[in-house]
Amino acid sequence: MRHTLAVLVENNPGVLARVAGLFSRRGFNIDSLAVGRTDDPAISRMTIVVEGDNRTLEQVTKQLHKLVDVIKITDVTEEPHVERELVMVKVLADRAARLEIMQIADVFRAKIVDFGPKTLTLEATGTEEKINALEEALRPYTIKELMRTGKIAMLRGAKYTTVK
């Protein structure tokens, strides 16, 4: 099963290497990892999507906790939460295809962020499923480039993943 972990870490040099190194040397699989700072510049937040059974997850969490730079870990998978991923995709778009691609963009509430002579670049945010669906919809038009940021997630309502 896939789990989504929200991990607060001290924003120290090497913290990403520590986390990534831990996953690789203990044989845990990362599906995606997104990292950036929080409202407190001393603290960064990682959203890690990891594949594994409950026992693996328990070990992942415990081993992460052993890292001195890791402050807090929340497994949001089973909790009500909002999750988003950003995708940018550059698609071949000749005259005939442009309109169709723009219609697809409309359906997925994606934005056209670049209008090239032969290509269109779309930006979309949404859940993983939505991004997957957009990708599938665009595939027939020849995707030249595609990149996803990896998932970020936040608990709904009055539950917080914060230091305090």
């Binding site: 290497a17 520590r18 190194g21």
Partner: peptide, 12 residues
């Protein structure tokens, strides 16, 4: 970098 997997923590 080399000692990351074999220390409790390290500092540069």
């Amino acid at each position: 970098g080399i000692t990351m997997p074999i220390v409790k923590h390290n500092y540069l």
